[in-house]
Design a protein around this nucleic acid. Structure first.
Length: 492
RNA sequence: GGUCUCUUGGCCGAGUGGCUAGGCAGCGGUCUGCAAAACCGCGUACGGCGGUUCGAAUCCGCCAGAGACCUCCA
């Protein structure tokens, strides 16, 4: 144990040793956002989780093809009601712009937010609207195999028929009989045989803006279809890992399995991975509860539940401090704890870089390295890995204080290890400080005052020295006295 | 109503039969003219009640509480 990556597979509900389909290569598909509004805190979780996976697999030497889609058509406000409007169309109608303007605007925001969080771009980022042909081909195939039917220009997946041959509900652990008795029966389902059938193609109503021609009607594809069509196109009929939020398990991922199985005769995905959800002060994040925080609001502190702004790296570190399959609760207190912890970790990296070697080591570097990688191998247990990094921080500080020593070889090794795990794998980075910020006059003035304070200190004029310190502090300038002199920062 | 999950010290969060993470806060100390910052040290927790066991936070049962999905959600 320890040197093999183990992944929890939602499909089997067990941890399994990860073995790729093709040696040395990994195909990874993750459900991306529907770009009809600003990216929110909820988007941070899966993207950071699977960014960690992507980075770690890459670190392990795999050649990874990471596909993450953009949903820019087909995601309805209400899948059950046939009057359900496409989310993007609706936004376009309300804002009186083209649907693709909506898509572009929020996709840009999403990309900017992801970059802020130091999330690597995927290898391929396909858009649903660019794969209408592929989706239509998949519908054809599903119809040919007898698992879909057409009504009034729309095509629906025949869940009951599929369930007779394959089992519908295996991923989410439910069976069709339960679904039958528990699904709300709604009026106006005339087109579907059963309420639990889902749309593969929807005929567009006259006022619907986003539409494409097809043999069935002028219309648009169903939401679940895009992921099936695009994952198969870019990763093959079978591929290694499919990820996404737990809330997508049913119905979205269940429907993906049904679609792929119905058209290909076999399941496509070998390992299903699901990240858990985020709560805020113990409550689910929802627009209706007023605790729906966008990433921009989080980074700028402009939301009433936030006491201050939290940097993207604080958010990233906070999310990595919990295991991806646990729920995680956001609160000001918890975020500020992470903020300080991260500072401590990153300053230890600087300390490590400045250490000088001794003839011999009195500390055990290898046990920390092993424990960190064991943790990551155990279903990406980043919180445990981070805990061991803090043990490393203690060692680093002890060496600096002269209580321990480190050999030249160990020091080089430790530096490499710390840099790769913190920066390459966990994807943390040092934030550029606001200091200066192009304002030469301000920084010059501050430096002048602080130099005057140094002179006052030299003359033991404590009154003047303290006055300068206190006045600057009340203006939001943090001053740290050091052996050599001083350091300062603008407090954010 | 159905299916499932969770309940850990002041806060956040790992662990999951004995070796009892980590961060933040708190307390004590080092440093400092004083402070701040930094660093070092300290803290024995697992909802309640039963049961299994030499031994349970960890397994089983019941009770209480919280949440998720079943409808769009990451």
């Amino acid at each position: 144990m320890g040197n093999q990556l183990i992944i929890y597979n939602t499909l089997t509900r067990t941890k399994e040793i990860f073995t790729p389909l093709i040696e040395g290569r990994v195909g990874l598909y993750v459900c991306g956002p529907t770009v009809y509004s600003n990216s929110h805190l909820g988007h941070a979780r899966p993207n950071i989780t699977f960014d960690l996976l992507f980075r770690y697999l890459t670190f392990l030497g795999y050649k990874v093809r990471y596909v993450r889609n953009i949903t820019d058509v087909g995601h309805l406000e209400d899948e059950v009601e046939e009057t359900g409007e496409d989310k993007i169309s609706k936004k376009a109608r309300l804002e009186k712009v083209e649907p693709m303007e909506v898509v572009q605007k929020y996709m840009n925001t999403f990309h900017r937010n992801m970059e802020d969080l130091n999330i690597l771009p995927p290898s391929i980022e396909p858009r649903a609207s660019g794969h209408i042909i592929e989706q239509q081909q998949m519908i054809d195939s599903i119809i040919q195999h007898g698992f879909a039917y057409e009504t009034n220009g729309s095509v629906y997946f025949d869940v009951e028929k599929y369930n007779d041959e394959f089992k519908y509900g295996k991923l989410s652990g439910r069976n069709l009989d339960d679904i039958k008795t528990n699904t709300r029966q709604l009026d106006g389902q005339g087109e579907k045989k059963n309420s639990f059938d889902f749309a593969l193609w929807k005929k567009a109503s006259p006022e619907h803006i986003m539409r494409w021609p097809s043999k069935w009607s002028d219309g648009f594809p169903g939401w679940h279809l895009e992921c099936s069509a695009m994952s198969v196109k870019y990763l093959g009929e079978q591929f290694d890992i499919h990820g996404g939020g737990m809330d997508l398990t049913f119905p979205h991922h269940e429907c993906e399995i049904a679609q792929c199985t119905a058209s290909l005769g076999k399941e496509s995905v070998r390992y299903w991975m699901h990240n858990n959800m985020i709560t805020i002060n113990g409550q689910k994040m929802a627009r209706s509860l007023g605790n729906f925080i966008t990433l921009d609001e989080l980074f700028s502190g402009t939301h009433e539940v936030l006491e201050k702004a939290y940097s993207p790296m604080t958010i990233r570190f906070f999310i990595l401090q919990a295991h991806y399959r646990s729920t995680i609760d956001f609160s000001n207190e918890a975020l500020q704890a992470s903020e300080k912890g991260l500072e401590r970790l990153l300053s230890a990296v600087d300390t490590l870089d400045s250490l000088t070697a001794s003839a011999q080591s009195t500390i055990d570097i290898n046990s920390i390295k092993e424990k960190c990688f064991d943790a990551l191998n155990d279903d990406l247990n980043s919180p445990i890995a981070i805990a061991h990094l803090f043990d490393g921080v203690k060692m680093i500080n002890a060496v600096k204080a002269g209580n321990e020593s480190i050999s030249k070889e160990d020091l080089a090794d430790f530096r490499t290890f710390f840099h790769s795990i913190i920066f390459d794998i966990l994807g943390l980075k040092k934030e550029q400080t606001e200091k200066g910020g192009g304002d030469e006059i301000l920084s010059g003035t501050i430096e002048l005052l602080l130099n005057l304070r140094m002179e006052a200190k030299t003359n033991k004029d404590w009154g003047t020295a303290d006055k300068i310190r206190n006045e600057l502090h009340s203006l939001g300038i943090e001053i740290k006295d050091t052996k050599e002199g001083f350091e300062w920062n603008l407090k954010s």
